[in-house]
Amino acid sequence: IDESKAILRAFHNAFPNASVWASADQEWIMMGIKGPGRKVKEEEIRQLWSDPDSGADLRRIGIEVPEQLGALFLMDGEEIDRITHGVAPLTDIYPKRLTDEPWDDEANHRFALRYLEAPSTFERFLRSSLVNAIWPETLNRSLESFFILRQSRYLSEMIGSNKLAELDLYLRHSRLRMPVLEVLGSDGLRLAIAERVAKKSQTPPLETMPDLIAGALARRDIDGAIRLLESEKDRGVFSLNDTFLLTYLYCLNGSVEKAEALAATNGGSITKDSFVDWLWEKLEKDFGFHLPR
């Protein structure tokens, strides 16, 4: 961590108006602005998404709406000053301020989480003099939810998560595609390949089905995802996780009776554990689902 701070200190020395940004991982980007910067209008930012070329590039890397750009924020120069106080900068004269010591994953995670936790980072964003100088306040209205989403994705990748709970969060409280694909183990490239392969066959090959299901849900095509899962079931390739997902989607789509029937049919293969308890309780609370006795 001290080595990272030495790099930050050196960068901030070169760029007084420095900041650090990241998506839901530990691949952080340092950015420096020459001069004070200028206030950018919301229309200018939205043009990046309306332009066919830049819009496609941004969506491909998972930045689907302008608000997500702001929610990449981690820290500004004032915070860099605070955490690097007393830290000698990395320079050409002192290159061995970077050592050969093994990386401490646990310490790195603790440090990263401090800046990926949504409430504190969002507050830091709002208080930042840099942000207030360059970012349009009109984009702040729903911004906090995107900080929460980034934290959720980071924790999911680092320590694991209840994938169905995470999927429920994205489907019901967001219109973003990429988090849905990611939580289901897919991505834009995998989906594009699966769709291309599926078009060549009357019945999609089984190996494409997980990505096609993820793609349907990313589009919020709940009916389409249900049809794909039912097709898997009819073809005799239907895992327990597929059962849970289809049960949830039936409820989400208003077909609670189908969900109850599916759960009853597969009751013998469902082992009671904390996840199953959570799922039945959630489906009952949110949709009126009742597990058949």
Rank of each mutant, 00 (worst) to 15 (best):
K39A: 12
E106C: 01
D53N: 05
G62Y: 03
G86K: 01
Q68K: 15
L58S: 01
F111I: 00
A112W: 01
L74A: 02
A118V: 06
T121G: 04
F111E: 11
F73V: 07
G70N: 12
H109R: 07
E78F: 08
I61W: 04
E64N: 00
P95T: 04
D81T: 10
W49Y: 11
E64M: 06
K96F: 14
R59G: 00
L113M: 12
A107L: 15
T99F: 03
P102V: 07
G70L: 06
K96N: 14
E117I: 05
R97Q: 13
W49R: 12
R124M: 11
S50C: 09
W103Q: 14
W49V: 08
I45W: 02
E79C: 06
G70T: 10
A88N: 11
W49Q: 02
F73H: 10
V40Y: 12
D100V: 13
T91D: 00
E44P: 03
G55C: 04
G77V: 05
I63T: 05
D51G: 03
L69G: 02
E78N: 13
T84S: 04
T91P: 01
A118D: 02
L126M: 10
A71R: 06
L72D: 10
M75P: 03
P102G: 07
Q68S: 01
E79Y: 10
P52H: 01
L72R: 14
L113Q: 11
R127W: 09
E42L: 07
P95H: 06
E106S: 09
E123N: 13
Q68Y: 01
F111S: 11
F122N: 04
E101I: 11
E43N: 08
G62Q: 00
H85K: 14
G62M: 00
H109M: 06
G62E: 03
G62N: 04
A56S: 11
P52S: 10
L116C: 10
R114L: 13
R97M: 11
H109Q: 04
T91E: 06
S54N: 05
Q68R: 13
E117K: 14
T91G: 00
E64T: 05
G62T: 03
A56Y: 07
D92I: 15
E123H: 01
